[in-house]
């Protein structure tokens, strides 16, 4: 890739001074191959306008701080190469969240919602396995398939891009929890072999799981390639069906859950 110049159109907004945000154009010269959008934005911050506010940390798609909307598509700034984009690049903050300043958004709400999800509740027997006549190391052993299933969700870096792209959250303000650390988190707890709480009914009634209409945008933007819809939302929906819409499965499930000592949150 030969050196070239790109124009970055960056969203600037300072709530103390401005009433409304605006896009300001900056020219970034000598773009090298392999350069990512974050490099260009940092160039602007260092050489052109030091007051530009961005949040970034690792530049390796691990910390999930530099989420933004690049050419209106939610993406990590550090994972979007400039040579995949045109000569004019718009960089905006995630507009599903309140803007603190420029490209920095306030994602606190997500953590508040997360604290509503029923906590990890360990099986009682596991705390004192000797009383059940089992060895401690046997009881705490987890099968590989369970590890695989939960590991996918643990890859989440909390960049909240899926939350930003979710049209229910973005356009309709319906009280839907949204996919990222909420349904994925709940699913990872639900599928944990040592946990005894079933969160599907809670998600369906309070989390607004029904608002999701499986349009899979969250899965498309996920920088960690978690199959959010296929492996978290649909199984949770199916669990909710088990408990609320399917009398046959409900009967079977109730017996199974009683046997395993599980509870519904």
């Amino acid at each position: 890739m030969a050196d070239r110049e790109v124009t970055l159109s960056i969203f600037r907004f300072d709530p103390e001074k401005d009433k409304e945000g605006r896009f300001v154009d900056y020219k970034v010269p000598t773009v090298e191959g392999g350069m990512v959008v974050l490099d260009a934005v940092r160039y602007v911050q260092e050489k052109i306008d030091t007051t530009l506010a961005i949040r970034w940390n690792c530049k390796a798609a691990r910390c999930g701080s530099c989420s933004a909307e690049i050419n209106n598509r939610p993406a990590l700034m550090c994972k979007t190469r400039i040579d995949t984009l045109g000569d004019r690049i718009t960089v905006a903050p995630m507009r599903a969240f309140p803007v603190i300043r420029d490209l920095v958004t306030d994602v606190d709400e997500n953590y508040r919602i997360m604290s509503k999800i029923p906590k990890f509740t360990v099986r009682k027997e596991l705390m004192n396995p000797e009383a059940e006549g089992k060895k401690h190391q046997d009881v705490w052993r987890i099968q590989q398939i369970n590890v695989e299933r939960a590991k996918e969700f643990k890859k989440c870096i909390e960049c909240f891009l899926c939350q930003d792209v979710c049209h229910v959250v973005r356009e309709h303000k319906s009280g839907y929890f949204g996919p990222p650390r909420h349904i994925v988190k709940a699913a990872s707890l639900d599928m944990h072999p040592l946990d005894i709480v079933n969160r599907a009914k809670f998600l369906n009634e309070e989390g607004g799981l029904g608002y999701c209409n499986i349009t899979k945008c969250c899965q498309e933007v996920c920088p960690e390639h978690i199959h959010i819809t296929d492996n978290a939302i649909i199984p949770e929906k199916e669990r909710a069906v088990d408990l609320q819409y399917d009398p046959l499965m409900h009967a079977i499930k109730r017996r199974l859950m009683k046997k395993r000592g599980e509870t519904v949150a």
Partner: peptide, 11 residues
């Protein structure tokens, strides 16, 4: 077992 809490649990 999309609905299973675990495969081959201790129990």
């Amino acid at each position: 077992g999309g609905g299973a809490e675990c495969f081959g649990c201790v129990f």
